[in-house]
Design a protein around this nucleic acid. Structure first.
Lengths: 200, 200
DNA sequence: CCGTAATTCGGTCATACGTCCGATTTATAT
DNA sequence: ATATAAATCGGACGTATGACCGAATTACGG
């Protein structure tokens, strides 16, 4: 009996997504809020409202699913950070914009930073993820070099290459960010602003 | 029959340690080389050459054991970094010494940095470890402030408090360190040296 | 010596996990 | 309308894990 169920046609909220998309989003949510080490395939299946076996159907295994979540996160970071750098047009202002983006994310969307930290930790122990994450750091550093240092018409600053300085800036944000996340000291995000010393 | 086993008296290598010490060292080794998420109680028991149940006997449960490993790591960091800061006597030289210590550790003892990164990641998701790690970062930052900025006779530098600047220095080392660990680029450790710009 | 407490061990239990399989339903093309 | 393929589901299997228990061994004070 081919009965038409009414709710199958009605676009119930977010039910427009395909099932593999729902799984991916659910995995992202679970890992962002509890960490990759504390998330099981069952957790993700439940969060997505989907049978457990569907995760393997679409992503083969846990590593395959996590890899896809990492790829999603990477493209999100690259897009957002490039957008925030593009908004301004002087090197100084761009640096300020980058810092502002980062501080803003830590305050209003800390899950995204937790995700980056978590997967970077995973990358330490797993070669599969190490190549993905090291590429992200390289691309972010290249982006900083391109948008902040290229207009300065110089290849060096105080004896250091712009490549090296970009890595330092990226590292400063990352390392300061984790401290902000761990310590709810209201004064701490100011350390991110202090990074601007590097451009004076 | 109280038979004396020869090897019980002979001090076989490192067998002077008590069993709880052996367990603690084994846990430290396992976590340092494979990450906290990839280490089981059985792994540690095997590494220590001890019955599984002994881990619970001495440390109650897995969390208790890991907490002790964290405490061990923390005291090691505090001791080593204070020692490296004490070696020099001018602020500039002390900063240089700190950077040198960090670069040296990354090259010759990267397990120690991996351990710090790993447990910091654990701290993001677990309140128990979060307080421990956030205290470590605070103590390290205070140390930097005390040994590097106190002689400068100033409470501020370019508009930022010395407390804020210390956090930035610590964050720079941490965030640059993880990039060095992920990327075998020979040029990358130079970014650590670039931190000295902050003192000019 | 002896008895009590501390230590050490092997084994077990319940559970949580990742993966896989067969059956059923849904979609698609002829 | 029918046949074939894709998608979805519930359930099962084997294994790994943390915690726990009772027995055996060792250490030690009387």
């Amino acid at each position: 009996m081919t009965e038409l169920r009414g709710d199958a046609i009605v676009s119930t909220e977010t039910n427009e997504q395909t099932q593999s998309e729902r799984i991916l989003l659910a995995a992202n949510t679970c890992i962002s809020t509890r960490g990759y080490a504390n998330v099981s395939m069952r957790d993700i299946a439940d969060e997505a409202g989907v049978a457990l076996s569907q995760l393997n159907y679409y992503f083969k295994n846990k590593e395959g699913l996590f890899k896809e979540v990492v790829r999603m996160m990477i493209s999100k970071y690259l897009k957002e950070i490039e957008a925030s750098l593009k908004q301004e047009n002087s090197p100084r202002k761009r640096a300020k914009g980058l810092i502002h983006y980062f501080k803003n994310m830590l305050q209003h969307n800390p899950e995204l930073f937790r995700l980056l930290y978590d997967f970077t930790g995973l990358a330490i122990w797993s070669p599969v993820f190490s190549s993905l994450l090291s590429e992200l750091f390289k691309e972010l550093s290249d982006m900083i070099e391109k948008y902040i240092f290229k207009d300065l018409q110089l290849k060096e600053l105080k004896g250091y290459s712009t490549k090296t300085l970009s890595r330092l800036i990226l590292g400063s944000m990352f390392g300061t960010g984790i401290q902000v996340l761990l310590d709810q000291d209201e004064e701490l995000p100011e350390a991110l602003n202090a990074m601007q010393i590097l451009f004076e």
